Simulated scan of single mutants.
Amino acid sequence: MTKFWVGVVSKEHVQRGVKGGFCQVCHGKKGPLNRMKKGDYLLYYSPKYQMADQEKLQAFTAVGKIVDDSAYQVEMFEDFFPFRRNVSYYQPVKDCPIEQVRLHPEWRQYASKLRYGHFKVSKSFFLYIFEQMKQEK
Protein backbone atom coordinates (compact mmCIF):
# COMPACT_ATOMS: atom_id res chain seq x y z
CA MET A 1 0.00 0.00 0.00
CA THR A 2 1.39 3.36 -1.08
CA LYS A 3 2.17 5.83 1.70
CA PHE A 4 2.74 9.57 1.61
CA TRP A 5 5.49 11.31 3.57
CA VAL A 6 6.83 14.76 4.39
CA GLY A 7 10.52 15.48 4.89
CA VAL A 8 11.51 18.74 6.58
CA VAL A 9 14.67 20.10 4.95
CA SER A 10 16.05 23.53 3.94
CA LYS A 11 15.41 24.47 0.31
CA GLU A 12 19.13 24.58 -0.41
CA HIS A 13 19.44 20.91 0.63
CA VAL A 14 16.24 19.96 -1.18
CA GLN A 15 17.67 21.38 -4.40
CA ARG A 16 20.82 19.24 -3.98
CA GLY A 17 18.64 16.16 -3.65
CA VAL A 18 16.49 17.02 -6.66
CA LYS A 19 19.60 17.61 -8.76
CA GLY A 20 21.17 14.34 -7.58
CA GLY A 21 17.97 12.24 -7.62
CA PHE A 22 18.06 11.38 -3.90
CA CYS A 23 16.45 12.29 -0.58
CA GLN A 24 18.01 12.66 2.83
CA VAL A 25 16.14 13.46 6.06
CA CYS A 26 16.85 13.85 9.78
CA HIS A 27 20.51 14.74 9.27
CA GLY A 28 21.16 11.57 7.30
CA LYS A 29 19.61 9.00 9.66
CA LYS A 30 18.80 5.58 8.20
CA GLY A 31 15.65 4.74 10.19
CA PRO A 32 13.26 7.34 8.76
CA LEU A 33 14.36 6.56 5.21
CA ASN A 34 13.72 2.85 5.63
CA ARG A 35 10.15 3.52 6.83
CA MET A 36 9.47 4.57 3.25
CA LYS A 37 9.00 1.82 0.68
CA LYS A 38 9.58 1.75 -3.06
CA GLY A 39 6.60 3.47 -4.68
CA ASP A 40 5.87 5.76 -1.71
CA TYR A 41 5.71 9.52 -2.27
CA LEU A 42 7.68 12.26 -0.53
CA LEU A 43 6.91 15.96 -0.18
CA TYR A 44 9.63 18.26 1.07
CA TYR A 45 8.71 21.10 3.41
CA SER A 46 11.38 23.81 3.72
CA PRO A 47 11.08 26.05 6.77
CA LYS A 48 14.11 28.06 5.59
CA TYR A 49 16.12 28.69 2.45
CA GLN A 50 19.40 27.59 4.07
CA MET A 51 19.93 25.42 7.13
CA ALA A 52 22.30 27.84 8.88
CA ASP A 53 20.38 30.98 7.91
CA GLN A 54 17.42 32.55 9.70
CA GLU A 55 15.52 33.70 6.58
CA LYS A 56 12.18 31.88 6.60
CA LEU A 57 10.63 30.24 3.55
CA GLN A 58 7.82 28.06 5.02
CA ALA A 59 6.82 26.30 1.80
CA PHE A 60 6.61 22.85 0.26
CA THR A 61 9.43 22.79 -2.28
CA ALA A 62 9.70 19.38 -3.99
CA VAL A 63 7.75 16.18 -4.59
CA GLY A 64 8.94 12.78 -5.72
CA LYS A 65 8.51 9.02 -5.68
CA ILE A 66 10.85 6.56 -3.92
CA VAL A 67 12.43 4.32 -6.58
CA ASP A 68 14.77 2.01 -4.64
CA ASP A 69 14.37 -0.70 -2.01
CA SER A 70 16.37 0.61 0.97
CA ALA A 71 18.63 3.36 2.29
CA TYR A 72 22.28 3.46 1.31
CA GLN A 73 25.19 5.33 2.86
CA VAL A 74 27.46 7.88 1.16
CA GLU A 75 30.45 9.92 2.24
CA MET A 76 29.34 13.53 1.95
CA PHE A 77 32.22 15.13 3.86
CA GLU A 78 35.08 13.83 5.94
CA ASP A 79 33.52 12.11 8.98
CA PHE A 80 29.93 12.56 7.66
CA PHE A 81 28.32 9.48 6.14
CA PRO A 82 24.58 10.12 5.73
CA PHE A 83 21.99 7.69 4.40
CA ARG A 84 19.93 8.43 1.28
CA ARG A 85 17.16 7.01 -0.87
CA ASN A 86 16.82 7.37 -4.64
CA VAL A 87 13.90 9.51 -5.76
CA SER A 88 12.30 10.35 -9.08
CA TYR A 89 11.26 13.98 -8.68
CA TYR A 90 8.27 15.55 -10.40
CA GLN A 91 9.42 18.60 -12.34
CA PRO A 92 8.80 21.39 -12.81
CA VAL A 93 7.12 22.41 -9.58
CA LYS A 94 6.57 25.72 -7.84
CA ASP A 95 6.82 26.27 -4.11
CA CYS A 96 3.54 25.91 -2.21
CA PRO A 97 3.47 28.44 0.65
CA ILE A 98 2.30 27.31 4.07
CA GLU A 99 -0.56 29.85 3.89
CA GLN A 100 -2.10 27.83 1.06
CA VAL A 101 -1.67 24.54 2.94
CA ARG A 102 -3.43 25.96 5.99
CA LEU A 103 -6.65 25.91 3.94
CA HIS A 104 -6.71 22.10 3.88
CA PRO A 105 -9.06 20.59 6.51
CA GLU A 106 -6.34 18.26 7.86
CA TRP A 107 -3.81 21.05 8.37
CA ARG A 108 -4.12 21.13 12.18
CA GLN A 109 -3.24 17.48 12.62
CA TYR A 110 0.04 17.98 10.73
CA ALA A 111 1.05 21.52 11.71
CA SER A 112 2.83 20.53 14.92
CA LYS A 113 4.73 17.75 13.12
CA LEU A 114 6.60 20.24 10.93
CA ARG A 115 9.26 20.53 13.62
CA TYR A 116 10.09 16.86 13.08
CA GLY A 117 12.23 15.75 10.19
CA HIS A 118 9.97 13.09 8.67
CA PHE A 119 6.35 11.99 9.07
CA LYS A 120 3.46 10.32 7.25
CA VAL A 121 0.44 12.23 5.85
CA SER A 122 -2.85 11.27 4.22
CA LYS A 123 -3.23 10.84 0.48
CA SER A 124 -5.74 13.71 0.49
CA PHE A 125 -3.29 16.08 2.18
CA PHE A 126 -0.47 15.01 -0.15
CA LEU A 127 -2.57 15.43 -3.31
CA TYR A 128 -3.83 18.85 -2.22
CA ILE A 129 -0.26 20.15 -1.88
CA PHE A 130 0.93 18.37 -5.03
CA GLU A 131 -1.84 20.02 -7.08
CA GLN A 132 -0.75 23.45 -5.78
CA MET A 133 2.86 22.71 -6.81
CA LYS A 134 2.24 21.54 -10.39
CA GLN A 135 3.24 23.94 -13.12
CA GLU A 136 2.12 23.98 -16.71
CA LYS A 137 4.76 22.43 -18.92
Rank of each mutant, 00 (worst) to 15 (best):
M1W: 10
T2N: 15
K3N: 14
F4A: 14
F4Q: 06
W5G: 14
V6A: 10
V6Q: 07
G7W: 01
G7C: 13
V9C: 10
S10E: 08
S10D: 11
K11P: 06
K11C: 03
H13W: 05
V14A: 05
G17E: 00
K19Q: 12
K19G: 12
F22H: 06
Q24L: 07
C26L: 14
H27W: 07
H27A: 06
G28D: 02
K30Q: 14
P32W: 03
P32S: 01
P32A: 07
P32C: 08
L33C: 01
R35A: 08
R35Q: 15
R35P: 12
M36F: 00
K38I: 12
G39A: 00
Y41V: 05
Y41M: 12
Y41W: 08
Y41H: 12
Y45T: 02
Y45M: 05
Y45K: 06
S46F: 03
S46Y: 01
S46M: 00
P47E: 06
P47I: 13
P47S: 10
K48Q: 04
K48P: 05
K48S: 02
M51V: 14
A52P: 04
A52T: 11
A52V: 10
Q54M: 10
E55M: 03
K56Y: 05
Q58S: 15
Q58E: 15
Q58K: 15
F60D: 07
T61C: 11
A62Y: 00
I66C: 08
V67K: 09
D68K: 10
D68S: 10
D68R: 09
A71M: 08
M76E: 12
F77M: 06
F80H: 09
F80R: 10
F81H: 15
F81W: 13
P82C: 11
F83I: 09
R85D: 09
N86D: 13
N86Y: 09
V87E: 05
S88A: 13
Q91P: 04
Q91F: 09
Q91T: 12
P92D: 03
K94I: 04
C96D: 05
P97V: 13
P97D: 13
I98K: 11
I98Y: 03
E99M: 02
E99L: 01
E99G: 00
Q100R: 04
V101S: 02
V101M: 04
V101R: 03
H104K: 12
E106I: 04
E106A: 05
W107G: 12
R108A: 13
Q109R: 14
S112F: 05
S112M: 10
S112C: 06
K113R: 09
R115I: 15
R115W: 13
Y116D: 06
G117N: 14
V121I: 14
V121D: 01
K123Y: 00
F125L: 05
F126M: 11
Y128H: 06
I129D: 03
E131V: 01
Q135I: 14
Q135V: 14
E136F: 06
K137R: 15
